[in-house]
Amino acid sequence: MVFDGIILSFIVGFLRKGNLKGLAQLNLKWGWMFPLLLAFEIAVFAFQNDFKILGQASNYIYMVIYILGLLFLFLNRNNPGFILILIGVFLNFLVMVINGGRMPVSLTAASVLDPGYIEALKHSLYAKHTALNHSTHLGFLGDIIPITKPYPRTQIISIGDIVMNIGIFIFIQYLMLQRPRTEDKKVITLSFEGGEK
């Protein structure tokens, strides 16, 4: 869902006549951490079912990734939208950490997905996720919201995902619209003053 939010934010930014100048001015504390954590999480998710030891330890690995991600977001909380991103990630982290490091998934919501996914989920073959049941804590924070047609990609998301993507949208709109406009105004002002002299 994160990738969807990023792509949608860029599309809206371009439709609003924004540009990518703000990306060149982006200066985040520990800026290298986000792509590194993302790549590491993707790698674990891709191979956790192929290597038993990785699958067994994946919940602990995900928790470490989340903790480092939360630290990164906290250090950069003054950026527009980052507080919402931080809250969204924390909500996902919270429901996972109190359920053994796995994200609870509603089987009812998951009915929109491929039947093979539901069977794998029931047998805990998707190590990052677990089926939501009567023993799940804070289940309402799990993946319980199905998204299907007309949306181009069928998936299930959590409340945390929604909050996080709102924050991502705000941040990217700021980068594409607010910062470039501010810089342009500075350039115009300086040029005008120079002409006066």
Rank of each mutant, 00 (worst) to 15 (best):
Leu125Lys: 15
Leu190Pro: 09
Val44Tyr: 05
Val64Phe: 09
Thr130Arg: 14
Leu177His: 12
Ser124Cys: 11
Phe47Asp: 03
Ile157Val: 14
Phe45Thr: 14
Gly81Cys: 00
Thr182Met: 12
Ser111Asp: 13
Asn99Glu: 01
Thr108Met: 10
Gln155Ile: 07
Pro150Ser: 00
Ile170Val: 14
Asn133Ile: 04
Phe40Asp: 14
Pro152Ala: 00
Glu119Ile: 08
Leu68Val: 15
Leu121Trp: 00
Met176Ala: 06
Phe51Glu: 05
Lys185Ile: 10
Gln48Tyr: 09
Asn49Tyr: 08
Phe192Met: 10
Ser124Glu: 14
Asn19Phe: 00
Leu75Trp: 12
Leu15Asp: 04
Phe34Ile: 14
Ser158Trp: 03
Ile98Trp: 04
Asn133Trp: 06
Ala131Glu: 06
Trp32Ile: 10
Gly139Glu: 02
Thr136Ala: 01
Val44Asp: 01
Phe51Lys: 02
Ile6Met: 04
Ala57Thr: 13
Glu196Thr: 12
Gly100Cys: 03
Arg102His: 11
Leu26Val: 07
Arg153Leu: 08
Ser106Ala: 03
Leu84Asn: 02
Lys122Ser: 07
Phe90Glu: 04
Arg179Val: 14
Lys21Cys: 10
Lys52Ile: 12
Leu71Met: 14
Ala131Asp: 03
Leu138Ala: 06
Thr154Cys: 00
Phe192Tyr: 12
Arg181Asn: 15
Glu196Pro: 08
Asp114Ala: 09
Gly88Met: 05
Gly142Gln: 05
Thr189Arg: 10
Leu113Val: 02
Leu71Trp: 14
His137Glu: 10
Asn133Ala: 04
Lys17Pro: 07
Met63Ser: 12
Val89Gly: 06
Ile98Ser: 04
His123Gly: 09
Phe169Val: 06
Ser58Trp: 09
Asn49Leu: 05
Gly100Phe: 04
Ile11Val: 13
Asp50Arg: 14
Gly116Met: 01
Asn165Cys: 04
Leu107Glu: 13
Trp30His: 11
Ser58Phe: 06
Gln178His: 15
Thr108Ser: 12
Leu132Lys: 04
Ile87Arg: 04
Thr182Pro: 09
Arg179Pro: 11
Ile118Met: 10
Trp30Lys: 15
Gln178Trp: 11
Phe90Lys: 05
Leu15Asn: 05
Leu70Tyr: 01
Phe10Gly: 07
Phe40Arg: 06
Gly55Tyr: 02
Thr130Val: 14
Ala110Pro: 04
Arg181Ala: 15
Val89Pro: 06
Phe140Thr: 06
Ser9Val: 04
Leu125Pro: 07
Arg77Ala: 06
Tyr66Val: 06
Trp30Met: 13
Tyr174Asn: 13
Ile61Ser: 01
Met33Tyr: 08
Val112Asp: 03
Phe51Trp: 14
Ile7Phe: 09
Val44Ser: 01
Val112Pro: 06
Gly116Leu: 03
Ala43Thr: 13
Gly160Met: 10
Leu84Val: 05
Gly195Pro: 14
Pro152Trp: 00
Phe34Cys: 10
Pro150Glu: 00
Leu113Ile: 02
Phe14Ala: 09
Ala110Cys: 03
Ile162His: 03
Phe82His: 03
Arg153Ala: 08
Gly55Asp: 01
Lys17Ala: 08
Ser191Pro: 11
Asn79Arg: 13
Pro150Arg: 00
Tyr60His: 13
Tyr126Asn: 13
Glu196Met: 12
Gly160Cys: 09
Thr189Met: 15
Ile6Arg: 01
Ile65Asn: 10
Met164Glu: 15
Gly88Arg: 02
Tyr60Ala: 11
Leu37His: 06
Gly69Asn: 08
Leu94Glu: 05
Thr130His: 09
Met33Leu: 15
